[in-house]
């Protein structure tokens, strides 16, 4: 899936890709330092929308509820309804997207569940970003998606079960490089 391949882009790709095998050892500037796997792991928490990169660990709705009330509710509300001046609503708004008052929440808008894991892991909770363990992130995800009625409250989330979730708005996105160009429907599908 790409957004924009115009003639210019194709030309540039042809120009540069033959060079892409050039390594730092071949007349390069050699200003960089080799990165080790542990170096990369330290900063890379990236989870792709297809679940690639999801770590080991697991979490349940009930554990997630406790964590949510302790670490998230102050900004996102005890009922996940959002708090003005603090954090957005996380649930509700299903079927509102084509109305004149669309409500974008995790429940109504987010196309893939692994994105929720990724965002919670990198940026939340707001007062201590990056402090949640992987299992805590699975648990809080289970609580938010449980309250959204996307999953059963008994579902324990881990890498596999989180990836398998069908989000309500999974077919709600398309890529359209530019008006006039051909629309590519439902590109977020698995």
């Amino acid at each position: 899936m790409t957004t924009k391949i115009n003639a210019h882009g194709v030309l540039l790709m042809l120009m540069f890709f033959p060079l892409s095998g050039l390594s730092a050892d071949n007349n390069g500037y050699n200003f960089g330092k080799k990165l080790s796997e542990p170096d990369i792991r330290k900063i890379d928490t990236t989870v792709m929308s297809n679940g690639q990169g999801l770590p080991a660990g697991s979490g349940s709705y009930i554990v997630g509820k406790e964590l949510y009330l302790k670490k998230c509710a102050a900004c996102h509300g005890v009922k996940l309804e959002g708090v003005a001046g603090a954090g957005n609503a996380l649930i509700g708004g299903r079927n509102s997207l084509s109305s004149n008052k669309p409500k974008k929440t995790v429940e109504s808008y987010w196309p893939k569940a692994p994105i929720l894991f990724d965002y919670l892991k990198r940026a939340m909770p707001f007062d201590a970003p990056g402090s949640l363990t992987n299992s805590e992130v699975y648990a809080i995800s289970a609580y938010i998606l449980g309250e959204s009625n996307v999953i059963d409250a008994k579902t324990v989330l881990d890498a596999k079960s989180l990836t398998d979730i069908n989000m309500p708005n999974k077919d709600g996105f398309f890529v359209w490089p530019r008006p006039g160009a051909e629309k590519q429907e439902n590109t977020v599908k698995k």
């Binding site: 929308s49 997207l97 084509s98 669309p102 974008k104 987010w110 196309p111 893939k112 994105i115 890529v175």
Partner: peptide, 21 residues
């Protein structure tokens, strides 16, 4: 990646409820 900043945010919601990425 389809990160939070290219799905939840910075996607354009059209009248039919579908969003452009």
């Amino acid at each position: 990646m389809l990160s939070r900043w290219e799905t939840s945010h910075y996607s354009d919601l059209y009248e039919d409820g579908k969003s452009r990425l």
